[in-house]
Design a protein around this nucleic acid. Structure first.
Length: 912
DNA sequence: TTAAAGCAA
DNA sequence: GGATATTGCTTTAAT
């Protein structure tokens, strides 16, 4: 047994070995650089890049855990000029400037290191290497153990019996350990010969030249033979050929390179090494730092979640002590429910979680629900929920007066409703609120939201159920526990997420708009819209015969049979067999989209039938066959699912089927709309759409006088734009001018670029650019808005709509042109598109109230972004024709009037 | 599962 | 000098 050099202490009769000192010296810059380039870009919601910090922190934690050092130091380079520049001004020249995405991370990284209670040094004129070199020298002299952590192999020169160098490998979490023995094994060199190695081979990253033509292989061969740079130079005569010439002409470079690669080990450090002693981190401080950075996995790993803001006690402890009750039948069950309801009476604090399996709530399998109170969670599997004794619980669920705090209550309400159970009184929905807090978050599972808010303890659904073919509902005990955990998480998240809504100024948006809307949507979806099967079928037959004959035509023109639906096969036929000019490419091959095909039309007779085939095949597969599959046998209705938590701008989206993209532009496709009919005999379809809502919103938020005037006088906005841009009178505006103006207006809304406009109009970039310039000259307020909103987005990190809906744009500060440009266009577009979405949502909630208050039988069925569709009994038609556009245009007061046009007919096609 | 295509506002 | 118009969903082919 060997105690190394540990000092022996005696306490009473016991002989103790004082743990030997073990220093850990970390090359801060080098590790941060490595991490930055090794990890994909990461940002927190404030837009701060965090990948280098994240990589550094994982490395640090791993090292601290594994090595248990007694002293720790992170050394940083200070300033730009070091003593190395005195001899060689090109030192580190040619190196890429530190990207801003990385440099912004250093101050935060340094704060984080402080939170770890770890000392950091930097000394002007010296690099981190030199500080570390000086300390390892002290370690050697005093016989302490030291570990150097770096991403830079130059540091291998510091290895000694007491000093081990850990060099990161692929990323930063893995390291190679270099003792002098390991260096010998790998390179056949002594540690100090690493300097000679660099002298000969140079180092491009530091702009150390070395000798041209000498890489690692040659340098090692030379050193194995001659031992050092100097000795190689002394023995030049023994070398021959190009190698000899190169070394001869660059011998000064070799000497200088060696000097540059030598770590200076006499830095005047005015601090005691005892300062570096490390006694562990301050949990509260570290937790706070990690939370700011949104490093949830690290928080969890350190079990710091509870130290960090999100109020409640550690979820894990809560899970372990979760008191779960699963009532079963009869008198006992009734008793449990009485106890539950009594408890809810005294305090309505709870968390409700309803489990419905499947993406489509209209077809979801309801497994049951869990209701978490402060000290107990009740779980009701579906059978119990439906049982006679649970009547009291179902009444509570249905009551509009008793508030519900839940998760995805929209889907829950639908799934319950199909099972014959009512859900009322939705008060706060953790998922819906989480979407408002960051509408670009795509992971809106309870588990993901829980983690984002700094909590732990909810396993992912995938972990419990498996996914894809492996999906399986687990044993009752496991299932009940999972539901209980989720309900309990909801209970804990509710107060927190409520505070977040207040903090971000979105309480009004949530409680007055989104929450009520979710109920309106559930009503529309459950109601559904009738689709005439026969109408679609006969359309389908006509399409089928046309498709057959077009297909034959294409095959004969191609001289081969192939799958026209396969872009790959079509590309081969067009561009290889027929030799048509291929212009655009996709990632995988030739592009064959409609734009490309239209350009090819003059070259081949085969193009028109292909375009026609594409058009009809789309109608057949998506709209005839696709829609037929969605019609419910019993009712002849389709029930879409409006998703309220998907679109980054606040729009709704529609799924299963998507009823927001039913064809209208081309007559053939428009026929599909004839199948959408009222569900009651004698009723009509009534539709109303906002006229130019986005441009009206733009007029309001930009305050542009010219644009406002146009809408105040209800002018044709595209004609008006053409008049102003081309400087002509209304009479002089021809079709082409109006078309161009319309494209400019679209472009303005989307965040215009001359390239985009030129593509759209088929004109040159220069011409497009002139149009835009002219537009901004006439609509000066619009230009100012576009400029200001981008600046504002940069300052705040987000943009908002009229109703204070937010969208974060972290990439607005990106150095990458594409990312930044995209964020800038988004900054211009989101307030416009988002405000339009706010407005129609308001109109929907108000229409729903009006129908109720007036006791009308008319039903709201569909929303298509700027359009609302109803079915209306004949006796209400006159009233509805007035009420609907009234409510829509008065949903909110803007500086310009809002206008809605109504139409009606026996089906959706006729309502045009 | 991903890419390409095309439908809507 | 480059790459470049917003937001969605569904279908098909091909991995």
């Amino acid at each position: 047994m060997c105690y190394n050099k540990g000092k022996l202490l005696t306490v009473g009769n016991e002989v103790l070995v004082e743990p030997m000192e073990k220093w850990m010296l970390i090359d801060g810059n080098s590790i941060a650089y490595r991490a930055f380039f090794a990890l994909p870009p990461l940002t927190n919601s404030a837009g701060l890049h965090t990948n280098a910090i994240f990589g550094f922190t994982t490395m640090l934690l791993k090292m601290l855990e594994e090595q248990k050092p007694t002293h720790v130091l992170v050394a940083f380079d200070a300033g730009k000029v070091t003593f190395r520049h005195e001899g060689y001004s090109e030192y580190k020249g040619g190196r890429q400037k530190t990207p801003p995405e990385l440099s912004e991370q250093f101050p935060v990284l340094k704060e984080l290191i402080s939170a770890f209670n770890i000392k950091q040094f930097e000394l002007s004129g010296y690099e981190a290497d030199d500080i570390i070199g000086t300390l390892t020298k002290q370690a050697d002299e005093s016989g302490v153990q030291a570990i150097v952590v770096t991403g830079d192999k130059d540091m291998l020169q510091l290895a000694s019996p007491g000093v081990t160098v850990a060099v990161t490998r692929k990323g930063v979490s893995e390291v190679d350990w270099y003792t002098p023995e390991a260096i010998d094994e790998r390179y056949g060199l002594k540690p100090l010969q690493i300097i000679d190695l660099k002298g000969l081979m140079g180092d491009t990253s530091d702009n150390i030249p070395g000798v041209p033509g000498v890489g690692e292989k040659t340098a090692l061969k030379l050193l194995h033979e001659y031992g050092s740079v100097e000795n190689v130079l002394d023995n030049l005569a023994a070398l021959k050929g190009k190698l000899k010439d190169n070394i001869e002409t660059h011998k000064d470079d070799a000497v200088m390179s060696k000097k540059l690669a030598t770590i200076y080990r006499e830095v005047p450090l005015d601090r005691e090494t005892e300062d570096l002693r490390w006694d562990g981190y301050d949990a509260a401080k570290l937790g706070e730092s990690l939370r700011k950075l949104e490093f949830r996995t690290l928080l969890e790993r350190l079990e710091l979640a509870s130290e960090s803001g999100a109020s409640e006690s550690d979820a894990k402890a809560a899970a372990a002590s979760l008191n779960v009750t699963v009532p079963t039948g009869g008198k006992d069950g009734e008793g449990e429910i009485r106890r539950l309801l009594k408890s809810l009476e005294s305090s309505d604090k709870h968390g409700l979680y309803i489990e419905a399996i499947g993406e489509n709530p209209h077809h979801a399998e309801l497994l049951g629900l869990a209701l978490a109170l402060e000290d107990e969670v009740f779980v009701f599997p579906l059978e119990e929920l439906k049982a006679g004794y649970a009547e009291g619980l179902r009444e509570w669920l249905a009551s509009e007066e008793r508030p519900k705090y839940g998760f995805d209550l929209h889907k829950s309400e639908l799934a319950l409703r199909w099972a014959g159970i009512a859900l009322g009184g939705a008060a706060l929905d953790v998922q819906l609120a989480a979407y408002l807090l960051n509408p670009t978050d795509t992971q809106l599972s309870l588990s993901a939201i829980n983690e984002r808010l700094g909590q732990t303890g909810v396993p992912s659904d995938e972990a419990v159920y498996g996914k894809g073919a492996k999906f399986k509902v687990p044993e009752p005990d496991t299932l009940h526990r999972h539901l209980a955990l989720k309900a309990d998480a909801v209970r804990r998240l509710v107060p927190f997420i409520n505070e977040e809504l207040t903090r971000t100024g979105m309480s009004g948006l949530y409680f007055d708009l989104e929450q009520p809307l979710s109920r309106v949507l559930a009503g529309m979806e459950h109601q559904g819209i009738k689709v005439e099967r026969g109408e679609l079928q006969s359309l389908g037959e006509r399409l089928e015969s046309q498709l057959t004959s077009i297909m034959a035509d294409i095959y004969s023109k191609a001289g081969a049979e192939f799958n026209i639906n396969s872009p790959k096969q079509l590309g081969e036929i067009l561009f290889e067999k027929l030799g048509l000019p291929a212009r655009k490419k996709t990632k995988t091959g030739y592009s064959t989209d409609a734009e490309v095909l239209e350009e090819l039309a003059p070259y081949s007779e085969i193009i028109p039938p292909i375009l026609h085939f594409r058009q009809l095949a789309k109608l057949q597969s998506t709209y005839v066959e696709g829609l037929l599959k969605e019609i419910r046998e019993e009712t002849g209705k389709v029930h879409t699912y409006y998703r309220q938590t998907i679109a980054a701008t606040g729009r709704l989206s529609s799924q299963f089927p998507n009823l927001q993209n039913i064809p209208i532009r081309l007559e053939e496709g428009r026929q599909i709309r004839k199948a959408f009919v009222p569900s009651e005999p004698g009723w009509s379809i009534l539709a109303a759409d906002y006229s130019q809502i986005e441009l009206r919103v733009l007029a309001h938020i930009s305050g542009d006088e010219n644009l406002k005037e146009a809408f105040i006088h209800d002018m044709d906005i595209h004609t008006k734009t053409a008049m102003d841009v081309f400087g002509v009178t209304a009479e002089e505006v021809d079709g082409n001018m109006r078309r161009s103006a319309k494209a400019v207006n679209f472009g303005i809304v989307y965040g215009i670029s001359d390239f985009g406009l030129s593509q759209n109009l088929g004109i040159t970039r220069k011409e497009a650019s002139a149009f835009i310039e002219q537009y901004f000259n006439v609509f000066k307020g619009v230009r100012k808005y576009m400029d200001d909103i981008v600046v504002k987005a940069r300052e705040n990190g987000y943009v908002t709509t009229l109703l204070d809906r937010r969208r974060y744009l972290p990439e607005i500060k990106a150095s990458n042109f594409n990312l930044r440009s995209f964020a800038e266009r988004t900054a211009m577009n989101t307030p416009i598109q988002g405000t339009a979405a706010d407005i129609i949502k308001l109109a929907m909630v108000q229409m729903d109230e009006q129908l109720r208050e007036r006791g009308l039988k008319s039903r709201m069925l569909l929303q298509v972004h700027d359009e609302l569709v109803f079915e209306v009994p004949p006796e209400e038609m006159e009233q509805m024709k007035k009420l609907l556009p009234d409510v829509m245009s008065n949903a909110i007061k803007l500086d310009v009037p809002l206008k809605a046009d109504v139409s009606y007919g026996d089906n959706w096609y006729e309502a045009k």
